[in-house]
């Protein structure tokens, strides 16, 4: 159930609920991204896109009322002992590849791939009269262009088959069966999530999660098999970096000049925006050049104060400022980010 997926995002220490939900909904403010990093759920960024915040909040409230979550202070939630037990007992599918959402337009790819596979399947059976899956004009145009680039139908279909067979062959057989049963093609409209749920004895929401995750796994497989016909459909939907284009440019400028005010002037940005860009990049790219921004003196001071403390999300800026009044919040936050990356590397 949706409730169980939500419960898994909390721990025995308090977490900012709205920030977590906004990570799942794909909000990319620095504060949301930082919460995702400290709570270890950044890999799920954007994976519940389109689900209204109200639905998350209402579900969380229900979990509080049922005694699985507790709210030690406004806006914060943590697992109760019952909640811990429920998380431990749940056998719901655990997604493994949702981080693809950071760099790939997964939903657009899913829509295009569904239509492309239908077109190939019908074409190889010489069917010209069939109902195409319902898609928007952009998806149709992109799939049409892809179809035109392909060689002979039988060869494309054979290659598509070989690719899918290789990809699915490495999965748990039940997951492979779910993937294939949901496809639309020749004499196969495909099963809905509710129908798959009945067939495989799982909740429809679990099927939603499984299919989402399988698409992400397929995306990763296609990225390492660039000769597969579907890789051509995927390629334009992949970004080189999870960082926004504007923030990438700021990082590039910074690595050249090293002067934040200069960048702000040249790009006609507020200095605070430039700092936000660097923080976004630092959160999303572990190899960010932290030591170019943080001076050795600042690093030493912060290490002395917080070196032994693992509870990064709970550090207070005021504590750090008490030691060094000149310290900026930007430097403090950057150090926090660096420590999070160090802890997971």
């Amino acid at each position: 159930m949706f409730e169980d997926y939500l419960l898994r995002l909390f721990s025995v220490t308090p977490r900012r609920a709205k920030a977590i939900f906004n990570v799942l909904r794909g909000r990319r403010t620095v504060s949301t991204l930082f919460a995702g990093l400290t709570y270890g759920c950044l890999d799920q960024l954007d994976s519940w896109h389109g689900v209204p915040l109200e639905r998350f909040l209402a579900t969380a409230e229900a979990l509080v009322n049922q005694g699985f979550l507790a709210s030690p202070q406004p806006g914060y939630l943590q697992l109760t002992p019952d909640g811990q037990q429920r998380v431990a007992a749940t056998t719901l599918y655990r997604p493994v590849a949702l981080s693809a959402f950071q760099t790939v337009a997964v939903r657009q790819f899913a829509a295009e791939a569904q239509l492309a596979l239908q077109v190939v399947s019908e074409a190889v059976h010489q069917q010209r009269r069939y109902y195409p899956v319902t898609t928007d004009p952009k998806t149709q145009a992109r799939v049409k262009a892809w179809v035109r680039q392909q060689s002979r139908t039988r060869e494309v279909a054979a290659a598509v088959y070989a690719g899918l067979h290789a990809f699915l062959g490495q999965l748990d057989p039940q997951l492979a069966a779910i993937f294939v049963a949901s496809l639309t093609g020749y004499r196969q409209p495909g099963l809905t999530d509710a129908q798959l749920g009945v067939r495989f004895d799982r909740q429809p929401i679990e099927l939603l999660m499984i299919r989402k995750d399988l698409t992400c796994q397929w995306v990763a497989w296609l990225q390492s098999h660039p000769k597969d016909p579907l890789a051509g459909l995927l390629a334009p939907l992949v970004k080189a970096s999870p960082v926004s284009t504007s923030a990438q440019r700021t990082v590039r400028d910074f690595s050249q000049s090293g002067d934040l005010n200069q960048i702000a002037q040249n790009r006609r940005l507020k200095p605070s925006t430039v700092r936000e860009h660097l923080l976004e990049a630092a959160i999303l790219t572990p190899r960010f050049p932290f030591k170019r921004v943080l001076s050795p003196a600042v690093l030493t001071q912060l290490s002395d104060g917080f070196g032994g403390r693992q509870d990064v999300a709970d550090w207070q800026f005021a504590e750090a400022q008490a030691v060094n009044a000149q310290l900026t919040f930007f430097e403090f936050r950057l150090y926090q980010i660096m420590r999070c990356h160090d802890a997971t590397s």
Partner: peptide, 15 residues
Amino acid sequence: EVEDWEIQLKRLFLL
């Protein structure tokens, strides 16, 4: 009846 996924995949893409 539940069909084996490999057979289903062949039926979709192989003539």
